[in-house]
């Protein structure tokens, strides 16, 4: 057995960045658009608009991107070998999911050097839910030799709306996966990169340990609670104002459309009366920054998580603030849909 292990190791497993390259290439070769990480703090790849908003509506999309995901309460000052404040997910969205999506997924594991005949792989029930986003799906956690390496989800609802078509979501935990491939016991020992000229290795710890430590200190000790609340209120009120004005514009457009329809009818019947131009309203709707409102939601969500890690949210507040963020997130999702429908109508 020892020699077998040595064989495995001597194959020289992929570095952290190679795992990411290989998976990205794999999915790009299968028709995925490769997107870059979203540049606002999110708790999971699902919250990036490339998932949360693109799964809405009928337009098909295949997209993949790495997403640093921040969970302030999970920070461990860099002391725990298995837990991180910020970890990297590779998120793949296939809408609609192809019938052989499971086989595609398994082949992606082969692409990073996992010979499935030498491992034990199971799809165990694990359903996903993000109540704040009015989103849920059914699926599995994929277990490889007892390790959860992927969350596999068939999205059913998002923003409180039924999805049709649904999306298949594949989320790889890149640190776990690479630690497994490299057979290291601590995330910080993962080889991030290896200089092909010199063979010099750079570890995950060298790149990220300092950040884990300092941001744990910030999240748990230094973040100014009253300022966080202030930021939260500011982002929240701006987002709510945007949503309110969207509804104004949108209902105006709907009204105008009804009016125009009537006028057209009159025109046909009576042969007179001007038809109002709707182009300016159409233009207004197209320009409306629903995506800006969504970014404000993400800000609120992250601030909420920070306040939570600081232990600054009482039970009663928690429920109330979560309900307010939910109203905004779901509101944005609905507005996003109304906008698309309005523009294609």
């Amino acid at each position: 057995m020892a020699s077998a292990l040595k064989n495995q190791i001597s194959k020289q497993p992929l570095t952290f960045q190679e795992v990411l390259f290989r998976l990205q290439s794999y999915w790009a070769e299968r028709g995925c658009v490769l997107q870059q990480p979203y540049d606002i703090e999110v708790g999971a790849g699902t919250m990036s608009p490339d998932t949360f908003l693109r799964v809405l509506g009928p337009e098909p999309i295949n997209i993949a991107y790495a997403q640093p995901s921040r969970r302030p309460a999970d920070g461990r000052y860099g002391e725990n070998p298995n837990r991180l404040y910020k970890h990297l997910q590779l998120q793949v969205i296939l809408k609609p999911p192809p019938a052989d999506i499971q086989d595609l997924y398994l082949a992606s594991l082969e692409a990073i050097g996992i010979d499935l005949r030498e491992h034990d792989i199971k799809f165990e029930e694990d359903n996903w839910e993000w109540p704040v986003g009015g989103a849920w799906g059914v699926g599995w956690q994929v277990m490889l030799d007892g390790l959860e390496i992927t969350q596999f989800t068939y999205f059913q609802q998002c923003g409180g709306m039924d999805l049709d078509p649904i999306s298949g979501e594949i989320t790889y935990g890149l640190e776990r996966l690479t630690a497994f491939l490299q057979d290291v016991d601590s995330i910080y020992e993962i080889v991030w990169a290896r200089d092909p000229r010199t063979g010099r290795e750079v570890t995950y710890g060298e790149i990220r340990l300092q950040e884990e430590l300092q941001l744990s200190v910030y999240n748990f000790e230094a973040a100014d609670v009253s300022k966080l609340w202030e930021h939260l209120r500011m982002y929240e009120s701006e987002c709510q104002a945007l949503l309110a004005s969207f509804h104004e514009v949108f209902s105006k457009k709907a009204e105008k459309e009804a009016e125009r329809h009537e006028k057209k009818h009159e025109h046909v019947v009576h042969g007179d009366g001007p038809v109002p131009a709707a182009e300016d309203l159409q233009q207004q709707l197209r320009r409306f920054p629903v995506l800006g409102a969504y970014e404000l939601c993400l800000k609120c969500s992250h601030l909420f998580n920070l306040l939570d890690a600081r232990g600054a949210i009482s039970v009663t507040e928690r429920v109330a603030v979560m309900a307010r963020i939910r109203a905004m997130v779901v509101g944005v999702a609905k507005a996003y849909r109304q906008q698309s429908v309005g523009l294609t109508a």
Binding site: A4, L5, R117, E118, H119, K122, G146, L147, F180, D183
Partner: peptide, 25 residues
């Protein structure tokens, strides 16, 4: 641990090692 496969000796070693690693963590 109950596997959903029938590993040869080499694979059994790899799978055992993987499971032990997870449990240790």
């Amino acid at each position: 641990t109950v596997l959903n496969t029938e590993p040869d000796e080499e694979a059994a070693g790899i799978i055992q090692h993987g499971n032990e690693r997870v449990l240790r963590a």
